[in-house]
Amino acid sequence: MSAFKNTGHLLRFAGLFVIAFFIFLIVRHFVVPKSFGEYGHYRGNAIKEDAARPSYYAGHEACEGCHSDVADKKSHGKHAHVNCEACHGPQLAHASADDPSKHKPVLPDTTVLCKQCHAASAAKPKNFPQVGDDHMPGMACKDCHNPHSPAMDQAPAEKTASTSKAPQGGKK
């Protein structure tokens, strides 16, 4: 016993650590969300909460059901793999409405829209089509390019199929 006679203060200090550790465990018990770690290092409920949030995008299948003409045109051009809503913005309200014409989407402004993807930048792959500010300044891109099938040197058959002659943006 005498060996421990002078260790009282040390044991008290150690006791502080033990108490602090238990307080830590108790606080931890209350502040860590119950679903934490359910699937991984995050709150499991976060997934359910995210799933419960309203959707805004309809997905291109929803668009193509009604706009088969556009879908068809688009599928032959280079924009085939660019989704409708990448340009038109989220359209679930339009697509799921009883009368979609009441939720008519605003048409994108091509002077702004196209540059978001096509403005020239050294960070883009070399073979990605891109244009600088000197490419037809002061004109809307749709005046010459059809947004749904933007190539200028399309096969003549394609062009005559549309109601007007190129530039296709001319049809209004």
Partner: peptide
């Protein structure tokens, strides 16, 4: 700060 221990004997 003493944590209630005033043992400052030479041994301690």
């Amino acid at each position: 700060m003493t944590l209630g221990s005033t043992n400052v004997s030479h041994k301690a």
